[in-house]
């Protein structure tokens, strides 16, 4: 046929294959088991923990999560790709999400997105070469009273004007929450360099 065939018989080697899930991450995943009747139900929390820990959900991580939950790897693949918040490729240290739904669009989200693209030098779905930022859009973030709104990791920013973008990007605390955090879904921070905190430098 004129177009290539994707080989699914061979495993995919992740570009920068992160290490196996640490025992701490697995323990964190297992800590959700008691909340549900089935282990399978811990899948969404497990994937959140993995993504926070590794920065993304690699093929290898999917397979390992499947093992921890004792479910088929195909069903982890199924779930990971259904939900837009899980990503299967590495992203920058911070992800900027620009809301693209109706209110934000009416209030200028299109121009705002262009401003981010210009200042970051990347397109939608891309990461800056230094790995600092990834840029994405999402449907309604339920911050329509503050349209146009933007999320930088966990932190929301409302009524952002294109002119605000340079200052916003320069602010090292632009992803730092003002409220006390709960560590329920937090990554397990080990010695390993590949684990990385998000949502600000809360360890000081």
């Amino acid at each position: 046929m004129a177009w290539p065939t994707i080989d699914r018989q061979s495993p995919v080697t992740d570009s920068d294959a992160p290490p196996l899930l640490s025992d701490e991450v697995k323990a964190k995943i297992r800590s959700f088991f008691e909340r549900y009747e089935t282990r399978r139900a811990a899948l969404l929390p497990a994937l959140h923990v993995v993504q926070e820990s590794l920065g993304y959900i690699s093929w290898r991580a999917m397979d390992e999560v499947a093992t921890v939950l004792d479910i088929p790897a195909s069903e982890v693949f199924d779930v990971v790709t259904f939900y837009t918040h899980y990503w299967t490729k590495p992203r920058g240290k911070k992800t900027i999400v620009v809301c693209r739904s109706i209110t934000c669009e009416l209030m200028g989200a299109g121009v705002l997105l262009e401003a981010f693209k210009r200042h970051l030098g990347v397109g939608e779905g891309e990461t800056t070469p230094d790995g600092a930022y990834s840029l994405a859009t999402e449907e309604c973030l339920a911050q329509c009273d503050h349209a146009p709104c933007v999320l930088i990791n966990e932190k929301k920013h409302g009524r952002v004007k294109p002119d605000d973008v340079p200052a916003l990007l320069a602010d090292p605390d632009n992803d730092k929450l003002e409220v006390p955090r709960s560590d329920l879904y937090d990554p397990v921070l080990g010695e390993d360099a590949t684990t990385r905190p998000r949502g600000g430098e809360r360890k000081g």
Partner: peptide
Amino acid sequence: CVTHRGSENEIDVFPGK
């Protein structure tokens, strides 16, 4: 399994399985 969502839905296997 089914992967992705909406009109992007596809049937697939886990790579390597």
